[in-house]
Simulated scan of single mutants.
Amino acid sequence: MSAMALYTPWRMDYITGAIDNKESGCFMCRAVNSNDELVVYRGNYCIVIMNKYPYNRGHLLIAPKRHVPGIVDLTDEELMECAMLIKASTCALSELLKPVDFNIGVNVGRIAGAGYEEHVHFHIVPRWNGDVNSIPVKYTLDAVINDIKELIPELSKLMRRCMSNDGGGPEVHTNKG
Rank of each mutant, 00 (worst) to 15 (best):
E81C: 06
K157Q: 11
C26T: 04
I135W: 00
Y14D: 04
I145P: 00
I145Y: 02
G169L: 07
Y139R: 03
C26M: 04
Y14E: 12
E118T: 04
N35C: 00
K52A: 09
D13S: 15
M159F: 14
D20F: 05
S24R: 12
V125F: 04
D36Q: 00
L38M: 11
L79K: 13
V108R: 10
M80F: 15
P136W: 03
N35M: 01
I148D: 08
A83W: 02
E77D: 15
V100S: 15
I71F: 14
Y116H: 13
Y14G: 01
S156E: 06
I86Y: 00
S156V: 05
N107T: 01
G168H: 04
M84V: 01
N103K: 12
V72H: 12
I135S: 05
Y14H: 13
D101L: 01
V172F: 02
D166Y: 05
K22W: 00
L158K: 15
S2T: 06
V137D: 08
D147V: 08
L6F: 02
H123N: 08
L151Q: 12
D13I: 02
P64N: 11
K22C: 00
T16Q: 14
V68E: 03
C29S: 11
C46G: 15
A83N: 04
A83I: 12
W128C: 05
I15P: 02
G167L: 14
Y7H: 12
L61P: 12
E117P: 06
D101Y: 04
T8L: 06
G17L: 09
L74T: 11
A143P: 11
M1R: 09
V172T: 13
R57H: 14
D166E: 15
R66E: 14
L96G: 07
P9Q: 02
S89G: 14
A83S: 15
V32M: 11
D142I: 03
Y55L: 15
N56L: 04
D166L: 04
K157D: 11
L141R: 10
I152V: 14
Y7F: 10
R57A: 06
G169S: 07
G130E: 10
G168R: 11
R30W: 09
N107V: 05
V132E: 07
N129Y: 00
D142Q: 05
M28P: 02
N44W: 03
C82F: 01
F102N: 00
T140Q: 06
M12F: 10
I15S: 02
R161P: 02
I71S: 03
E23H: 13
N56H: 04
K87I: 01
V39R: 07
A143R: 13
N146W: 07
T16D: 06
I71V: 15
M163D: 14
Y139W: 09
A114Q: 12
I135Y: 01
H173G: 08
M163Q: 13
E154C: 01
M28W: 05
W10C: 08
E95P: 00
Y139H: 09
R160T: 06
A112M: 08
N175S: 13
P69Q: 09
H59V: 13
